[in-house]
Amino acid sequence: MASVSLSEAEKVYIMHGVQEDLRVDGRGCEDYRCVEVETDVVSNTSGSARVRLGHTDILVGVKAEMGTPRLERPDEGYLEFFVDCSANATPEFEGRGGDDLGMEIASTLCRIFNNRSSVDLKSLCISPREHCWVLYVDVLLLECGGNLFDAISIAVKAALFNTRIPKVRVLEDEEGSEDIELSDDPYDCMQLSVENVPCIVTLCKIGCRHVVDATLQEEACSLASLLVSVTSKGVVTCMRKVGKGSLDPESIFEMMETGKRVGKVLHTSLQDVLRKEESLGPERPKVGFLG
């Protein structure tokens, strides 16, 4: 369910709890729920990841396809985002019902990830003005349990980490026409550096405090939230206010500081998990949706 409706009494209960730094599920204001990350779950993609954050379930697949560079950036590849809010998450999304939310998330993701400071777009270029790799990042929303943006950004980062792009060579013959040769060895591929890929931390304003990783119930109590994208070094790369309420400037700065602090910790633990999974190699037993 994309949203829930709560009674006045339930809202008051949650708000008083947040005031005392004690949330309904026992967390403090700056604690995340348990995050489960698994990479390489869909074998016909270049890279994929599944993230479960509480009841939020996200599957991301990255497919690398050959395309032509954009005119304004002839020596760079690019990323394309598509978010499918499937009817699995809630019957409201049936047919075209999830398109609006999908568009909103996709454009936010595009603004955060598709630039030179997050991903090394130059490495995606094969021959300037002619050929480049286009990474289609497709996000599939399987269940909504609050805090979609954070879960999606974690899944996108994990999927980009898992992405393997085949190595290609550009051969030029006598007449000057170019030919692209794909490596025969399927293991001869390049990996993207995800060092600077940011994660999104959403801070929900509840009463006069703010919480990270809000559940659906907490989101129903909050009027406005701030979305901050933070890199592993704690640099804020993007910020956006979402929700129907308003925020005062002072609390925005407070929330930014929290976002930086929480984001750094989030990055460290995500990197650890990804490295550990990578070190197990192809023998790692795949759990996927069966576990």
């Binding site: 869909v42 016909n44 993609t45 994929s48 599957l59 697949g61 990255v62 497919k63 396809e65 598509f82 499918d84 499937s86 009817a87 049936e94 047919g95 289609y136 497709d138 599939l140």
Partner: peptide, 16 residues
């Protein structure tokens, strides 16, 4: 409703 993820097939699908 049947839908198939955009990345499910060998060639990427445009619409799920």
């Amino acid at each position: 409703q049947y839908s198939s993820a955009t990345f499910s097939t060998g060639e990427r699908k445009r619409r799920p």
